[in-house]
């Protein structure tokens, strides 16, 4: 009953969010014009647009060419980052875990900025090379963290977190060094903007890598919902329940690096979504992963769409990096939740 209620309210919230995010923005376009464009383009795709007057070309480009791909990317990035947060928290059985804490995001940022400033050769063309560089950077960071934390037969959670924090700082310094010593000052501010996290300038074609990895990763985690639940009780118990614990951990790490790489490459470093959203979701629907994974996806997606809407409306006709806003609105909200809730995290 509670789940049904949650789902229907989320569905309503999604519709409302999409409606607002498409019709509000940096410039003023009326609701009527916005929906004229949407209806026209949807009908056109099914070959029935001739009945309608064609919309104003500028409004059409703003709504269909700029806002819609951007909103869709915000959905994917927000949902993806939250789901990666869920995976990481189950992996280390610690509510602090997040792609940022474990160094994956900083590694991905370092890889992507190396590529962005032209210090790495484009192997597969711009569209795939940057996600690839980000993925490799993230994988390298989490790989080193993993090796440090791996003691003979098992993964020490305390070491994993400490090594993650250290690696995160190291990779951030690498990024700072690359940007500081960049030969091209013009690119510097662009890199800065991207490093702070930004969804501006999203094109339809850029949606494919994040779409593929996010959908595949979320589906993978849904399939693994039961083993992930068992991990919450404790590795020992999970092992005795017949779950290949070490293999599961390696799979989760690889998945986190892959998803974070794909998302950081398109959207830059957007922090705190993966930390805040899963916790908020657990407060409402409990700790079972069959519910936590999908609800976190939708919750994170909606959160980032709203944050991005704020990023493009706070300063009229200008852009703000959305990463600043996710931290600004997310962290106080998170602190209030922590203070209020009788918060439990699985077995601990």
């Amino acid at each position: 009953m509670r789940t049904t209620l949650c789902w229907s309210s989320l569905a309503a919230a999604t519709l409302f969010t999409l409606g607002m995010a498409l019709s509000l923005g940096s410039t003023n376009i009326s609701f009527a014009t916005t929906y004229h464009v949407v209806v026209y383009r949807v009908l056109e795709a099914f070959g029935g647009a001739s009945a309608l007057a064609s919309p104003d070309p500028i409004a059409e480009r703003i709504v269909w060419g700029l806002r819609l791909p951007r909103v869709l990317l915000a959905l994917l990035v927000g949902g993806g980052l939250s789901v990666v947060g869920v995976a990481m928290q189950a992996l280390v059985r610690n509510p602090l875990a997040e792609p940022y804490i474990l160094g994956i995001s900083s590694g991905a940022s370092a890889g992507a900025s190396l590529f962005y400033l032209g210090l790495l050769p484009p192997v597969l063309g711009q569209a795939l090379s940057m996600p690839l560089a980000a993925f490799l950077g993230g994988l390298l960071a989490i790989g080193i963290v993993y090796l440090v934390a791996y003691t003979g037969t098992r993964l020490s959670v305390a070491r994993l977190l400490l090594a993650g924090v250290a690696m995160s700082a190291l990779m951030a310094s690498v990024t700072s060094f690359i940007t500081f010593s960049s030969p091209d000052p013009g690119k510097l501010r662009a890199v800065l903007f991207w490093l702070l996290g930004s969804l501006s300038g999203t094109q339809w074609g850029e949606l494919i890598p994040p779409l593929a990895t996010t959908v595949a990763g979320t589906a993978f985690l849904l399939v693994l919902a039961r083993p992930l639940d068992a991990m919450l009780i404790g590795e020992e118990s999970a092992y005795h329940l017949g779950i290949p614990v070490e293999r599961l951990k390696r799979a989760l790490i690889l998945l986190a690096a892959l998803m974070t790489g794909a998302l950081v490459a398109v959207a830059g470093a957007i922090g705190f979504v993966g930390l805040i959203v899963p916790h908020a979701v657990r407060l409402v629907v409990g700790v079972g992963h069959r519910r936590v994974v999908p609800f976190s996806f939708v919750g994170g997606a909606l959160f980032l769409v709203w944050a991005d809407l704020a990023a493009r409306t706070i300063l009229p006709e200008q852009e703000l990096p959305v990463g600043i806003l996710t931290a600004l609105c997310g962290v106080p909200f998170f602190l209030v939740l922590l203070r209020r809730g009788s918060y439990g995290f699985g077995g601990s």
């Binding site: 940096s26 410039t27 500028i58 480009r61 703003i62 006709e317 200008q318 852009e319």
Partner: peptide, 12 residues
């Protein structure tokens, strides 16, 4: 200022 793409479209 960091302009939005929408601004350029509207100002033409």
């Amino acid at each position: 200022p960091t302009l939005s793409e929408e601004f350029v479209l509207q100002e033409a």
